[in-house]
Design a protein around this nucleic acid. Structure first.
Lengths: 244, 244
DNA sequence: GGTTCTAGAACC
DNA sequence: GGTTCTAGAACC
């Protein structure tokens, strides 16, 4: 029987123990050879265990078995678990098989460090998660504040610009309107009446109040002027409406 | 021996078992009466335990002891832990004392729910935290998206308005400017030359060139007027377009 | 890695 | 609440 040097002592001892025909009245392979049986637990513990291990406690032996992944084989009779009192105890491991000692190296001891590490990792993770949550939380508050600020600022900027623009429009339209109207009125009132048709010298508006020929002509001009001027007024009104 | 009804069966049975002088060769009080000893573990398990409990396993008995807070008494000799092989096993509990069965009610079974509860609470907390993190995460993405949208939207709205305003200003200024200039030119060109200085009747500009120009002059007037009027129409059209 | 005491978890 | 199997943890 050649054992790989990296196979733990417990496994080689157990293999020897089960394989040894001298101890078959206490511990032996099952019929299928895929598990082993402890026939007399008490005598096995007190008489056999000390020969191979540093104790004579069945509990310690079982602890080792569990540590290496062995499982107790439950005997189910008539649908319910029926563990006959003082009957044989059976343990099994996928890589613990009769005649296949080369599988033993696949049996790994459960690292006792792993579990505490897991717990520590979980604690660390919890701490990290909590820190992360707080970080995200404060960040979110920051973003929220920025959002509110931006909203207000945006509103202000918009309104500011809006008012600027509106003011410019009002002022400019108003100025040009008045300018236009002023000039128009001024020049119109001082223009000569051209369309008297008979080639006579033109007259000024004040000169033709009594000239019946020209009255019609002046009315036409006034009509056009009023039309156009009202158009301008309408336009300005429309602009005012638009701004509001 | 009067026991409080809320004292678990295990404790009353254990008390009886230890107190009973008939079983003293297997289990008895220690000399100080503050602990008890199991003298022959194997025979005790197989012969005594079944009489009181539903098993004959020392391991189950010990499990119960630990469940109720009993501790194994370690025998320290010469500075090192020296557990004599097959010697008596000793267990102790502060409220398990010879002659003081009234203390038994102070012995509490470790609630098997307590530990799992702790674990469950931790698990629940973990779940809650994870849910919270995901919630915060998605919320943050939402806020981020809104922030980006707002930024773009704000830019667009501002530019749109800006362009509107600018357009209005430019167009109106332009229109009124041209209108003004047009009317001004029109009327200026048709104003009578009043200032010829010699007291003669004033002349019109066309009379300086040609007297026949009267018809042409009418055309010019109409042209200018149409130009100006179309300008006004264009402006109103532009405004209508803006409204849409 | 081995041994021991105690605890967890599932099932009853 | 009791019993059983398995695992954790400390110590060696």
């Amino acid at each position: 029987m050649k054992h790989n040097s990296n196979v733990p002592a417990f496994l080689t001892k157990l293999w020897t123990l089960v394989e040894d025909t001298d101890t078959n009245e206490f511990i032996c392979w099952s019929q299928e050879g895929n598990s082993f049986l402890v026939l007399d637990e008490q005598r096995f513990a007190k008489e056999i265990l000390p020969k191979f291990f540093k104790h004579n406690n069945m509990a310690s032996f079982i602890r080792q078995l569990n540590m290496y992944g062995f499982r107790k084989v439950m005997h189910i009779d008539t649908g319910i678990v029926k563990q006959e009192r003082d009957g044989p105890v059976e343990f099994q491991h996928p890589y613990f098989r009769q005649g296949q000692d080369d599988l033993l190296e696949n049996i790994k001891r459960k690292v006792s460090n792993a579990r505490p590490e897991d717990n520590k990792i979980r604690q660390e993770d919890l701490t990290k998660i909590l820190a992360s949550v707080q970080s995200v939380h404060s960040k979110q508050e920051n973003i929220d504040a920025r959002l509110a600020t931006l909203k207000r600022s945006s509103g202000r900027t918009y309104m500011k610009r809006h008012n600027q623009m509106t003011g410019i429009v009002y002022r400019n339209i108003s100025v040009f309107q008045r300018t236009t109207i002023s000039w128009f009125l001024f020049l119109f009132l001082n223009r000569p009446i051209l369309m008297n048709g008979n080639g006579k010298k033109p007259k000024f508006i004040h000169q033709i109040y009594d000239d019946k020929v020209c009255v019609e002509q002046v009315s036409k001009e006034w009509l056009l002027f009023t039309l156009c001027f009202s158009k301008v007024l309408f336009l300005s009104a429309a602009l005012n409406k638009l701004e509001v």
